[in-house]
């Protein structure tokens, strides 16, 4: 879809202005301007799996930059990417994988940064009634397993992991999202599923069974400032903050790996 050279020129202009201000200004300059003009809002679109960690990180960012209100919107990364492509007024995008960040490449200002990593794990109902011990159990006919569909990030990782392990999965259902897998396992409909390590902490009635060699498939969460910021430089500051020590601490506590 081409919107003509006008948009591209405008985007380039904003990127240049943003880069100049970024280069010449500091946090203090942004804050000073924010104080002069009243409070500044920053709209952040983040992958739903980050919901629990983004709140405290946004609060820390707000207290470090007095006059900023971070507005968080969560959703599936591909939904958010589609909304950004359709012109949603997001200023920062935090995606659950590289593919969805690549999908909004036209709207990204500057470089995308890896903010966190995640690996896959088996999830079973509390008490592990079916006695699942490893990935190879998911190939046994008597076991009801659910995984993510290969079209979505967690499913792509699952397929890769199964191939590496030489296991042919026979899922009863290929869900649209991690939430779908967790729901089926927590309710006892399925004996086992595959989700991200950090999803377990957010779910009730389930427990994890480690997958041998899960480290071989690592999912990268990406963050990038988007074009069209209301407060030039602010989105880049937020992205920088996401890769900083305070954010890392919150992410690590929630089970995310940090790059």
């Amino acid at each position: 879809m081409s919107r003509g050279p006008g948009i591209a020129i405008a985007a380039l202009g904003i990127a240049i202005i943003g880069a100049v201000i970024w280069a010449s200004s500091t946090r203090d300059a942004v804050d000073a301007r924010a104080h002069a003009e009243g409070r500044v809002e920053l709209t952040v679109f983040a992958a739903a799996s980050l919901a629990d960690v983004m709140e405290p990180i946004a609060e820390a960012f707000e207290s470090a930059h007095g006059a900023v209100d971070v507005r968080l919107t969560y959703g599936g990364s591909s939904d958010l990417a589609a909304q950004i492509a359709e012109g949603a007024p997001a200023e920062v995008f935090v995606s659950a994988d590289e593919a969805q960040m690549a999908a909004v490449a036209d709207h990204v200002s500057g470089d995308a940064a890896v903010v966190a990593t995640n690996t896959l794990t088996l999830v079973v109902p509390a008490g592990n009634p079916a006695g699942v011990r490893g990935l190879e159990d998911l190939a046994s006919p008597g076991l009801v397993s659910v995984i993510c569909a290969p079209q979505v990030p967690c499913g792509a990782g699952t397929a890769e992991l199964a191939t590496l392990a030489g296991v042919t999965l026979t899922p009863a259902s290929e869900e649209q999202s991690v939430t779908g897998v967790l729901g089926k396992v927590a309710s006892g409909q399925a004996d086992a599923g595959i989700v991200y390590v950090t999803d377990i902490a957010r779910a009730e009635g389930v427990e994890a069974v480690e997958i041998d060699g899960a480290d071989a498939v690592v999912n990268h969460y990406m963050a990038a400032a988007l074009t069209g910021a209301r407060e030039p430089g602010l989105p880049a500051l937020f992205v920088e903050f996401l890769t900083g020590p305070e954010a890392r601490e919150v992410l690590a506590a929630a089970g995310f790996g940090t790059p």
Binding site: G76, S78, D79, A82, A149, A172, S173, Q176, G180
Partner: peptide, 24 residues
Amino acid sequence: LTFAGSLAGVTRTAPLEIYLAREA
């Protein structure tokens, strides 16, 4: 989606296929 799951040919009806395809 909540009750039956989503598997091609078994439980993935057209609305579920649309929901899945919309991503990729």
